[in-house]
Structures are given as structure tokens and as C-alpha cells.
Design a protein around this nucleic acid. Structure first.
Lengths: 291, 291
DNA sequence: CAAGCCCGATACCGTACTGGTATCTTCGCT
DNA sequence: AGCGAAGATACCAGTACGGTATCGGGCTTG
């Protein structure tokens, strides 16, 4: 059956007059395109393109399909807009752990706004205290956050997995090392997370060992406070290896810590199409972002 | 992405207000429909249907989508018509082996005409002499015929596989049997196919044994002649067990003959989108016809 | 009010389709 | 004649799709 996907492909090829370029534009490779066009031709029972060694040339039927497909896709886009506009105006609250402002994160926001222009977005920045950013008590509808945390009642999709490392002062004896392991840090004071913090989360950022067995460091609530603690005290901090670090700090990869996953999460019982849509867009965005 | 398939599904449900009935109308089962609608809702980020124990009720967005989808599908249909109309007028010659007028065969013709209104169809009835119905010399573009035959240069898609049986006079001693095997027919005269007939084909309809080793029967060129030969001489005829037999004839299933496949076939080097379309429609039609 | 029933959702499975990698064929150009 | 570019083909892996079986939850009905 004629599907919009095939029309999108055909439009790209008709405009580029070249399978390879069209494939690049569609973020795919050339062979599936050949098949797709062949399938479209089979469906319509008509030759759409004359192939040659220099490129392709639409047949009369191909030209006709080009204009038809353009308008059809255009109308489909407008239809989608009208349908979403017919729904009640809603607000989506996105809880975030302050580190989602990276490259793919902005792409995510752009895509989501483009697809749901009528949805007003509210960002709720959470501190280090609550990895679920208030999903459970309705303060956020969906969260961009990090594993691990207590996942009861929470649905999670992994977007990316980041290795973690120690954040150190530049003049620290370990700062020159290529890698360190937890044993190297055994005698350092670790920062503490406040009472009431998710225990799984708390344990992870304390190096997966009981808090009581180390010299106590300061209590921190935000990433910034964490950085400050490293800078001013000899405190050990660990973080995913993606942050741009302020002057005077470096990080060294930790070999024996499981990587931390960036995830999109939501309260399972509050799942809604809009939340699913956000999650879907998120995994799509991050998938195409670096594969 | 929004695809026409999902819109077709949604329209059916919106009209039936019932997943089960819509599924029946779409020739499928209910669970995939649930998933499809959920996917559509996720894509649009909007609830389309209120589910209840009595059926479904479209939300405002659902009603909007219903009208949008209707027009969109309508426009897609018109677009297809305009595109095929833009192609040069063509004639498709269908070679047939005289037994394709059965139930699914007419459905095939109807579907093909509906999808390609601008294509004029010419039927070329072939006699028993040429199982390819003139595909090789261009007398036919596609054939509805039976295996086995020499397939060099011919592309084949199987539509259905029919057991074969002996055609006997009603007063024949074997006529009462439930099944017979080739050995039971060893001393009967078999009809002959003319010189020049495809040898594989010829061997098959002569019971897969060399012609010379049996009493010679009459030479036949058509199915009708074959029937007549059975009726008037003691000749043995075998046929797929689908023909309505004239009075005075019965058939008995043959246990040791491979079944004969009804196929759609075309000359590989003359393959065209229209031919592929015909073949595609053919396999679709026969698949849904009896599964 | 309890039991049965109807309807949609979910779980699970096998197949088909979609997209990727590697390679081939062909045609144009040097 | 040989090289290079473009599209086609072969093959593989991952995902999507449709089917079967089963669940959960409101109505209905005795």
C-alpha cells in the first residue's frame, strides 16, 4: 500500500536526482532507497524514474507523483497540526538534572516544540537530592535524569550510557593519571547527600560503598556545590564524563564504577500519549545523535 | 511517523466505535489494532479515543483526526489515480491456462482493475500445449498457470498448491476408491501432449513416467479434449482437484503425485512495475483468500 | 450482590519488513 | 581499454507487525 514514508523518500530523490544524495539527506544509505522506490513503482504499476549512470530522471508519472506527494505530505503535516490543536491546551513539566543542556538535549527540545507547538513546556530543575525530579508527587510529568535510582512505579528508557570519573583539583597527585580505581580514593573524604535522598542513588555517587566507612565530606545538594567542595576541600566527587569543568578542576576516568545512564523517565501511572511522545522523541533524538 | 496505514485503522475504529468490529472489517485481529492506535496517540501526543467496557468514544482530537484522515486518505487515492493516469496508456496481456476463472481469480481481476483503471487488459487463453502461455515470445506479459514447467528466464510466484487426482468415468472400477496411486493406472492408456510441449510439463501430466512405456492414448490440446478423451476412451486423465466435472465423470485423489502449484509467472527480462504489481496483487489476493 | 460476559489491554511468539554492509553491473569518461 | 561513479543486488541483523492466548475491568443479569 502507498505509505507516506515512501512518498517522503521519493520526494527526496526527485529533488536530488540522485539516490546517494537523497539517502544522505534522509539519514540513511542508498540500497534501502532503491528498494523503496522499486516498491513504490510496483505499487503504482508505473516506472517513476529513469536510471542512468549519471543520476536519475523522473518519468512523466514520476513528475506527477512528485507534485502529488509534495501536496499530500504538506496536507498531512497540516492535518497533524489541526488534530493536536483540537486537543485541550496542556502543559508538560520536564524535570531535569541540570546536565541535559548538551547538544542532543537542545535538539530534543527543538524537535518536541516543532511537533507539539501547542504544548507549553515548563522546566523544573532538580537538585542532586531527587533523581526522579518529583515524578512521584506530580511535580514533573517526565524527567531527563540519570540512573541508578529506585525505579518502583517509574518507567525508564535509556538514552545514553556515560562512563564516570573522579573530579579532582588540577594539582591533585592523582590528576595526572590516565585512570583511577575506587581503591585509590579509599582515604579521601566523599561528599554526602542529604537525608532522605534515594538510597540507591546515594550509594552510587558515594562510590558504591557504605557512607560510614569513609571520612565524612560536606553535604552537597547541587552539582555546583559538589564542584565547590572538590575545589575548596580535598573532597572526592565523581561525575559523568561530559561536563565542561571549571578552571582548576580535571577529571580522571574511574575504571571500576558502572557507567551512569542518561534516561528519560516518567511515573508509570501518569503515562499519557504526550509523555510517551516525549519519550519517543527523546530516544529517537539520542539514537541518531551518535550512532 | 504518521503513516497512512494507521489512519486507515483509525478511520475504521472511529466509524465502528468498536475495536473488534473494526478489526474484522480490516481483515485482522483486535490486538494489533490496540497497539496501532496507541502508537498513533503517542505520535500525536494526544488521546484519540476514550475506551470503555461498551466500546470507544472519540475525544475532540479524535473527531478532528477522523475528518482529517478521511480527507487525507481520499486525497491519497486521487493522487494515485492522477499519477497512474500520467503514465502512458498500456495494455497488459494475461496468459491463462483456462482454469483461473475460480473464486479468487475474479477477485484478482476486480482488485487489479480497481487499482489500475487506465490499464486495458487482454486475456489470452492458452491451450494445454504451452504452460508459459507465450511468455517467452511476448504473446503474454504475465501468466496465471501451473507448475511444473521449464522455468529458465521465467520468474514465478506460487499462489496455491493443489493436490491432483485421476479423472475417471463414473462407471470405472476405480471410481469408488478413496485414493489411487500411479501403479493402479499402469495399464491404462494416457493421453498424450503434442510434440514440442515443454518436456517437464509433458512428463508431469503423464504421471511422471516415460510416455513410451504405456499404451498410447489420444493426443489432446485442451482441458476439454482431455475430458472428452476420458469420457469416450478408457483414457486416464489427471487434473488438479478443483475443476467442476461434467456429468459422468468423477475424480479420485492420487497419492503419489506431487501437487500442482497455481502460479503467477512472467518473463524475467520483461519485468516491469505493472507486471510486478499484478504479481503482487495476485499473491495478496490468494493469500487472504484461504488462510 | 455475585456470576458471567463483553470489550479493550497485555504478553508472547513467529514472520516480514526495514535498514545496514559488502559487492556487483553498467555506463560514461579518460 | 581501464577507471570511476551510480544504481542494483545479496545478505544479515534488528525491529515492527500481525496472530494466539490470556488478563483486567466494567456492565449486565439472575
Amino acid at each position: 500500500m502507498m505509505e507516506l514514508r515512501l512518498l517522503r523518500y521519493f520526494v527526496a530523490i526527485a529533488e536530488e536526482r540522485h539516490f546517494g544524495r537523497a539517502a544522505a539527506r534522509l539519514h540513511m544509505t542508498q540500497p534501502p532507497l532503491s528498494r523503496a522506490i522499486k516498491q513504490l513503482e510496483t505499487d503504482l504499476g508505473v516506472v517513476l524514474l529513469h536510471r542512468s549512470a549519471t543520476g536519475v530522471e523522473p518519468t512523466p508519472a514520476g513528475n506527477a507523483l512528485y507534485t502529488e506527494a509534495r501536496t499530500l505530505l504538506e496536507q498531512a503535516e497540516q492535518a497533524r497540526a489541526r488534530v493536536t490543536a483540537a486537543a485541550d491546551a496542556v502543559t508538560l513539566t520536564i524535570g531535569t538534572l541540570a546536565d541535559s543542556a548538551e547538544e542532543a538535549g537542545t535538539r530534543l527540545a527543538a524537535t518536541f516544540r516543532r511537533r507539539h507547538p501547542k504544548v507549553s513546556i515548563r522546566i523544573r530543575e532538580a537538585d542532586f537530592t531527587d533523581p526522579t525530579t518529583g515524578l512521584r508527587n506530580g511535580l514533573a510529568d517526565v524527567a531527563l535524569t540519570r540512573l541508578p535510582f529506585d525505579g518502583i512505579g517509574i518507567s525508564v528508557r535509556v538514552l545514553r550510557s556515560d562512563p564516570v570519573g573522579v573530579v579532582l583539583r588540577a594539582d591533585d597527585p592523582l590528576a595526572g593519571r590516565d585512570t583511577v580505581c575506587l581503591a585509590d580514593l579509599a582515604d579521601r573524604p566523599w561528599f554526602q547527600l542529604p537525608e532522605g535522598t534515594d538510597p540507591i542513588w546515594r550509594a552510587y555517587w558515594n562510590g558504591a560503598t557504605p557512607v560510614g566507612e569513609r571520612p565524612a565530606g560536606p553535604v552537597v545538594r547541587t552539582v555546583n556545590e559538589c564542584m565547590q567542595a572538590v575545589l575548596w576541600n580535598g573532597t572526592v566527587g565523581i561525575a559523568p564524563l561530559i561536563h565542561a569543568l571549571p578552571d582548576g578542576l580535571t577529571w580522571v576516568p574511574l575504571t571500576d564504577m558502572p557507567p551512569s545512564s542518561l534516561v528519560v523517565a516518567w511515573a508509570t501511572e501518569h503515562e499519557s500519549p504526550l509523555v510517551r511522545s516525549f519519550a519517543h522523541i527523546a530516544v529517537e533524538t539520542y539514537r541518531s545523535a551518535h550512532t
